[in-house]
Simulated assay, not measured.
Amino acid sequence: MPAAAALPRFPLRTAPGGPPGGVPACRAVASELLLHRLVRRELRLLAELSAWAPADDADRTRALTRHADLLGRLLLHHHAVERELLWPALVRAAPAALPPVQRWTAAVAGLDVRLRGLSTAARQWAVAASDRARDTFTLACLDLADAVDAQTAEEERDLLPLLAAHLSPAAWAEVTRAARCPLSRRERSLVLGLALEDASAADRARLLAGLPASTRLAWRLAGRRRHRAAVVRLRGAPPAR
């Protein structure tokens, strides 16, 4: 879970069908899979939605570019916690993990450049309100989505099995304690809602069970309603669940 403060400390399984390639379930792996799935889905949706958006509709532009900003900050934070906390803990436990961690570091440096490029494209669309600026934003979403697909597939193949095999629960707990998420409380609630969208009924129950009682109550009283409203503004339709 490198976005440790943005998401609950999830139970052992979150991905439908289990982890890829027979990777044993553990909290660290489950959280990685969850965030990967969320970001992959939302980037593809953002590209599709922006392609059809009127370039000069300020409200629509604002909704789409704010969502891009949220995804960018979430993923940059995720990478920072992986780089500074998670992978160093893995290498301490399993020195053989160093080569795939080094490959990850090189790949993610390029990915972070693309994330900042998407932010620049979003600002340019908001200012220019032109078809060209909108199309540049859409292409940046598609380029980033392709890069995220490739990077997360490699990470899930090469690093998650090592994470499942070697990172102890105590080391994982230390990572989650040290992580500090830059998202606001409302943004964290939206990310939770996005995470819950793809979850099965059993996995939704597990995810919510991982939250403090006060956070579960806040989600039921206001978070769920705000998430639905945000998704309707963004997609023009309510979330699937």
Rank of each mutant, 00 (worst) to 15 (best):
A96S: 14
V101D: 01
L183I: 04
R40L: 14
L85K: 03
L139D: 13
L12H: 07
R206H: 08
P100C: 03
L115I: 14
S119R: 07
A164G: 10
A121C: 13
A107M: 08
R224A: 15
H36S: 04
A153W: 02
P20C: 11
A229H: 05
V108H: 12
R40Q: 13
L160N: 09
S184K: 06
L196H: 01
P99A: 04
V108D: 02
D112A: 12
L194V: 06
Q124S: 08
S214K: 11
P24C: 05
D57T: 00
R13W: 05
D57F: 02
C26F: 03
A55H: 10
P88V: 07
L163I: 05
V175K: 03
A147K: 03
A3S: 13
L111T: 04
G117H: 06
T138M: 09
L207V: 15
T61I: 11
C181A: 14
R9K: 07
E156K: 04
P239M: 09
H77P: 05
L43C: 08
L208F: 01
R92G: 14
Q151A: 15
A140D: 09
C181L: 07
P24H: 06
A230C: 09
T14H: 09
V127G: 00
A25L: 08
A199D: 12
T138Y: 07
A4W: 07
V108P: 01
P11N: 04
H227C: 14
S214A: 12
A80L: 13
H227A: 13
L221F: 02
L45C: 08
H166V: 09
E82Y: 09
L86A: 14
A89G: 05
A53K: 00
G193T: 03
E197P: 03
Q151T: 13
A195C: 15
V108L: 00
T105L: 14
